[in-house]
Amino acid sequence: MATSVPTSSRRKTGRRSPLASVALLLIGLLATGGAYAAFTTSASASTPASEQAQVSEGKKLFEANCATCHGLGAVGTAGVAPSLVGVGPAAVDFQVGTGRMPMAASGPQAEQKPTQFTNTQIAALAAYVGSLAPGPAIPSADSLKGGNVSTGAELFRVNCAMCHNVAGAGGALTEGKYAPPLTGVTAKHVYEAMVTGPQNMPVFNNLNITPKDKAAIVAYLQYLDSHPSPGGLDLGNLGPVSEGLFVWIFALGAIVVVTIWLTAKPN
C-alpha cells in the first residue's frame, strides 16, 4: 500500500519519485554483480550447485508426498513400505512416472494411474533418492534405440513371456497380482522395469540381460505396438480365454438363431 500510493500520485504529476534513480542503480548493480558471480562460478561449480538444488527440491517433495509410508530419509516402514535407499533414480522414475506411486490405496499391487507429478518434479525426486545411495540410473535416450527385433523377440520369449504373454498382453499372477500389459508402455519405462524389478517382477540386471539386449526387447515391444496382429481381430491376445468366449457367444448364438428359424412355423 505504501508504494502504490506514491505510484498513482506520480502518474498524475508526471514526475519521477526521488528514490527511482537510487532503485534503478541498485537493480543495475545487483544484476551485473549477480551475473558476474554466476558466470565466474559456472566453470567450476554450477552443475553440482544445480544438482544440489534439485536434490533438495526432491527432498522437500519426498517429505511431503512419500515419507508418510517410506519414512523420513526413505528408510522404509516395516510392513508398510520398503526402504528406498539404493533403489536408484530408475526405480523412482518408473514408479512415479507411470503413476504407480504414490499409491492410491493398499492392495495386491500398485495400479498404474495418471501421473501426479510434473517431469521436473519426478526428476527431482529421482535425484534425491539417487543421492541416498548408488542405484540403477535412468537410461539415456540413446541406449533405448537400435535394438534387433528378432533377438528381442527371442529374449522376450525366454525371460518375459511367461508372465507378460508372448504378445505382451499381460497375465494373471497369484492372489490378485498380475503382470500388466506392455502395449503402449514407453521404452524408458520398460527398460527401467527390467533394471529395477518393480513390485513382484524379478530384477534383470545388466549382467543377465545386457543393455544391448534390453534395447532389443524394447525394439520387439515397439514392433508389436506398430505392427498389429496379421491375423485380424486379436481379441486382446489372451489366447483360449477370449477366443473361447467369442466362440461361445457368437458361434453358439448363431446356432441358436438358426435352430429357432428352422423350427418356426412359416406364415
Partner: peptide
C-alpha cells in the same frame, strides 16, 4: 556375482 538379489536367470 552377476546374480543380484531379486534376480531371476533362465
Amino acid at each position: 556375482s552377476d546374480v543380484t538379489l531379486g534376480s531371476v536367470f533362465h
